[in-house]
C-alpha cells in the first residue's frame, strides 16, 4: 500500500532520466527557432518529428532491449511473463497470436495487427538516445538489412508500424494514446528526412 507513492516517484524518475537522455524538446519549441540553413531545419524538424513517434510508447513498447514486450503508457513489462521467444513471436505454444490477432479486438481490448510480433532483438531501441536509435535505424545490421528506400516503405506502409495511429482500446475500453505526431506528418517526416540525406543532427 505504501508502494503507490513509490511507484509514482519511480515513474517520475524514469521520465526524468528519459528526458535527460533523450534531450527531447517539444516540437513547438522548434517553430520559434530561427536557423540560417532552411534545408537543414527541415531535415532536423523531420528528424525530430520522426523521433517523437519512434520514441513514443506505442512504438517503443515493441522495441525492447530486454526481450520483454512492454504494455501501456507506463511501459510496464508484459503481464504473465510473455517474452520474445526464439523468433520474436513469443513461445512455442503460447505465442503472440494466442491472444493477438491481425486486428484490434474491441471486445477484449487486446490490440492486434498483421504479423504482430516484437521487433527483432537487433532493433532494440529501449533506453537508447535518439541519435543511437537513428544510427541503428540506418545500420543494415540492425535494421533488418533494409536500404533507405526499404526503410521508407517499412515505416510508411507497414501495417504493424501504422497500427500506432489505430491502436484500439485497452482492457477497460478506453482508447490507447497515439503518437504526438499525426500519421500523415510522420510519413512526410520520414520521407523528407531520407530525402534530405538521413542526417542525424548531432553528428
Amino acid at each position: 500500500m505504501k508502494q503507490k507513492p513509490v511507484y509514482t516517484f519511480l515513474i517520475l524518475m524514469v521520465i526524468g532520466v528519459f528526458l535527460v537522455f533523450a534531450g527531447a524538446p517539444k516540437i513547438s519549441d522548434y517553430e520559434i527557432v530561427e536557423v540560417e540553413n532552411t534545408v537543414e531545419v527541415t531535415s532536423d524538424d523531420s528528424y525530430n518529428k520522426m523521433m517523437d513517434v519512434l520514441t513514443h510508447q506505442r512504438c517503443m513498447n515493441c522495441h525492447p532491449s530486454d526481450h520483454i514486450p512492454k504494455q501501456g503508457d507506463t511501459s510496464h513489462p508484459h503481464h504473465f511473463g510473455m517474452a520474445r521467444g526464439e523468433d520474436d513471436h513469443g513461445f512455442e505454444a503460447t505465442s503472440c497470436n494466442t491472444c493477438h490477432q491481425s486486428e484490434n479486438n474491441l471486445n477484449s481490448g487486446v490490440p492486434g495487427a498483421p504479423h504482430w510480433a516484437l521487433a527483432p532483438a537487433s532493433m532494440a531501441w529501449e533506453g537508447l538516445t535518439r541519435e543511437q536509435i537513428a544510427e541503428r535505424l540506418l545500420d543494415k545490421s540492425t535494421n533488418g538489412n533494409r536500404s533507405h528506400q526499404e526503410l521508407i516503405e517499412h515505416m510508411t506502409e507497414d501495417d504493424l508500424v501504422l497500427w500506432a495511429w489505430e491502436p484500439g482500446v485497452d482492457a477497460d475500453g478506453k482508447p490507447r494514446t497515439i503518437p504526438p505526431v499525426s500519421k500523415e506528418d510522420f510519413k512526410k517526416a520520414v520521407e523528407n528526412w531520407f530525402a534530405d540525406g538521413a542526417i542525424i543532427p548531432s553528428k
Binding site: 503481464h79 505465442s95 497470436n97 494466442t98 490477432q101 482492457a171
Partner: peptide
C-alpha cells in the same frame, strides 16, 4: 475474463492455442 488474460477459454485453431474470448469468429 473476456480479456485474454486468464486462459480459461483456450482452445485450438488449426492446432495452435488461441484464447477464444479475444478471437473473432470470422477468423
Amino acid at each position: 475474463c473476456g480479456k485474454a488474460a486468464c486462459g480459461a477459454c483456450t482452445l485450438l485453431v488449426d492446432d495452435e492455442a488461441v484464447r477464444s474470448c479475444s478471437y473473432p469468429v470470422k477468423f
